[in-house]
Design a protein around this nucleic acid. Sequence first.
DNA 1: AAAATTATTTAGTTTTGCCTAAATATAAGT
DNA 2: ACTTATATTTAGGCAAAACTAAATAATTTT
Lengths: 218, 218
Amino acid sequence: MRTSSEEDYLKAIYALSNNSDGASTNALANHLNMKASSITDMLKKLSDKGWVHYEKYKGASLNIDGKAIALNIVRKHRLWETFLVNKLNFKWDEVHEIAEQLEHIKSNELVDRLDDFLGNPTFDPHGDPIPNKDHEITDSRKRSYLSEVKINREVIIIGVKDSSAQLLQYLEKENMVLGKHISVLEIHDFDKSLRIAINGKELNISERVAQNVLVQIN
Amino acid sequence: MRTSSEEDYLKAIYALSNNSDGASTNALANHLNMKASSITDMLKKLSDKGWVHYEKYKGASLNIDGKAIALNIVRKHRLWETFLVNKLNFKWDEVHEIAEQLEHIKSNELVDRLDDFLGNPTFDPHGDPIPNKDHEITDSRKRSYLSEVKINREVIIIGVKDSSAQLLQYLEKENMVLGKHISVLEIHDFDKSLRIAINGKELNISERVAQNVLVQIN
DNA sequence: AAAATTATTTAGTTTTGCCTAAATATAAGT
DNA sequence: ACTTATATTTAGGCAAAACTAAATAATTTT
C-alpha cells in the first residue's frame, strides 16, 4: 500500500528524470513546493520501500517498481483529463487540478474501464502520450517545440510544455489549439520572436510562447 | 477547507441521525470502525468549526452547515456510483468502495457537470435518492421494505438497505434486480418468510432478505 | 588551493488523526 | 438507593508528513 504523498514524489522524480540521470533534492523540493529537508526524509522512505535508488548527496532515480507506479499515476492523470475534456466538456486549462486528485483513486478495474469508455486514447488533451496498461508509452510522433522548427516547415500543434492557465488561455484566445496547422514564416533575430501562419492568417508570437508549444513535424 | 476524514464523520453523523436525535459516540465509533476516544476528539473539532452540535455525553448532531456538507458528500457518492454503473458498466455491488474515494474529490464544477452528463438522475443504482445542487432530497416515491408490504400488493424494486456484496449477489442470482415487479403472495407465520411472484415465477425468500429489499408502492 | 557559495542532510518540532489505558459519567439491575 | 455495567471522556503516545534551524558536504569562485 502507498500514500498519495508517496505517489506524488514518484511522479515528480519521473517528471524530473531526463534521460538516465535522476532528480536532485532541490529540484524535487522546487517542483513539489516543499523544503529540501522534507524531500530527504521521503527519499529515504521510498528507498526503503524499494521504489527509488537514493544515495546521499547524489539525488534519486526510479527503479523498476517505482517507474511502474509513476507511469501508472501518469496514465490515470491523463485518462482523467481526457474524460474531463471529452465527456464533461471542460477546457484543457481547467482540468489539471482536478486530475491531480483523481489520479490517486485506487482501482485498477476503474482505470481499465475508463480507458475503454474513452476509446483507449493514446494522447491526452494537452497532447501528452497516455501510458498503456503495461506502463509503456508508445509515442511514434516526431515532436519538437515550435521554437525549434525551421522556416516554412508545416507542423501541427499537439501539446504544451508549461500547462499554466495563463498560457493555455493565451493560446485559446489566439485560436492556437490542438490539431491546428502552423507554418513558421520568419524568425526575428533581435528577440527570436516568430511570425507564423495559422488559420489562414499571420500572427507574431514571442520566443517564450514558441518554446512552450509542442508540435508534430510531418 | 476540510479533510476527507472530517467529511467521513459528517456523513456518518448524517447517516446515524434518525429523525431529529443525533448520533452517539459509540454508534459513530462502530459505524466508522474507530475507537470511541477518536470520535470524541473529532466531535470537538467539528464543533469548533461550527458544523456539529456537540455536548459532552450527549452525542452529536449536524447543524445547518454540517448538514449541507454531509448532503453534498452523499450527492457526490451517489452520482459517482451512478456513473460507475451506467457508464462504466460496473455491477451495483462493486461500486461502493470506489465511490467512497471519489466522493472526496473537490470541485463543484465537476459534480455539476457529472450530474448533467448522467442526465440529472434522481436515484442511484441502489435506489437511494440523489440530493440536488441545493442539498435537497426530493423523493416523491412511496417506499417501504418488502417485509412490510401487504399481501397481493404489487411493488417495484428500487433499492436495498444493506448493500453488502453477499446480498447483492444473492439478489442478482434470483434475478431480483432494480425495476422488477413483485407481488407478495403469502407470508408464512412461523418464520415470516415470503412467497412472492416475480419474473412470472414464484419464489420463497427469508424475512431477512425481505427486510433489506426496498420497494416502491404504486 | 583556499574561501565563499550553494546543496543537502540532520536534529528537533508541529499538526493531524488515530491509538491504549485509565478515569469518570450515565444507565441499568436488584 | 446502591451496586454493577456500559458509555464516554481524558491523558498520554505514536506515525506520517510537513516544517525550521543548524550542521555538513559539494561545488564554484577567486
